[in-house]
Simulated assay, not measured.
Amino acid sequence: MDAVFQQLGVWLADSALTLLFVTGFLSATLLPGGSEAALLATLSLNQYSVTSIILVATLGNTLGGLTNYWLGLWIPNRTQDEKHGHKALQWINKYGYWALLFSWAPVIGDPLCLAAGWLRMRFIPCLILIAIGKLLRYAALVGLFAGFGTL
């Protein structure tokens, strides 16, 4: 059994896409971090297609955002205090589901996903809008780094 785990560890360590997925996931949770460096490093390898890189980063980052959504479901008190509420809560109250397009944004993005779960917003619209926002972000980063002709 140790050999299986050892082989798995070697595979994970050698795969830039796996690292990109993990950093994308972790950077979208409430933990601090960013996936931009991993995205650009993976892109600079010229080993994977641009589409694969964008999709893997988007998948990891979307699942990280959904983790925040699910954590929000565990928060029992849904009373809203507009005056003292977090900026993410104010955005969701003002823009509704559309605010989740900004789930990629630094500082506000993670709390947006958490607030969506806390407010018990419907899962499928949240999933779609979080994924679209994160996909557009990674496509823009790749476009800026490698040129929009690569998309």
Rank of each mutant, 00 (worst) to 15 (best):
M1D: 13
M1C: 11
D2F: 14
D2R: 14
L8E: 01
L8D: 00
V10W: 01
W11C: 04
L12N: 01
A13N: 14
S15W: 00
S15T: 02
L17Q: 00
T18R: 02
L20Q: 01
V22H: 05
F25R: 11
L26E: 06
S27D: 15
A28F: 13
T29N: 05
L30A: 13
P32F: 13
G33Y: 04
G34E: 06
G34F: 00
S35N: 07
A37M: 11
A38F: 10
L39C: 09
A41Y: 10
A41F: 12
T42C: 08
L43H: 07
N46R: 07
N46P: 01
T51I: 12
S52N: 06
S52G: 03
S52M: 02
S52R: 04
I54V: 15
A57L: 04
T58I: 06
L59W: 05
L59C: 13
G60W: 03
G60A: 08
G60E: 07
N61Y: 03
G64P: 06
G64L: 13
L66R: 04
Y69D: 04
W70A: 13
W70N: 07
G72W: 00
W74G: 15
I75Q: 12
I75V: 15
P76L: 09
R78F: 01
T79P: 00
T79I: 09
D81L: 10
K83Q: 15
K83A: 14
H84M: 00
G85V: 08
H86P: 02
K87T: 13
K87R: 14
K94N: 11
G96T: 04
Y97H: 02
W98A: 12
W98F: 10
A99T: 02
L100T: 05
L101M: 08
F102E: 03
P106V: 09
P106N: 10
I108H: 06
I108K: 06
I108G: 06
D110C: 10
C113S: 15
L114I: 10
L114E: 05
L114G: 08
W118F: 09
W118I: 07
L119R: 11
L119F: 13
R120I: 03
R120T: 04
R120G: 03
R122S: 12
R122I: 05
F123Q: 03
F123T: 04
F123D: 05
I124K: 08
C126M: 09
L127G: 10
L127Y: 13
L127Q: 08
L127K: 10
I128K: 01
L129M: 09
I130C: 11
I130Q: 10
A131T: 15
I132L: 11
K134G: 02
L135E: 07
L136Y: 06
L136C: 11
Y138L: 08
A139Y: 01
A140F: 13
L141D: 09
V142K: 06
V142R: 02
L144D: 06
L144W: 09
A146C: 08
G147D: 12
G149P: 05
L151V: 11
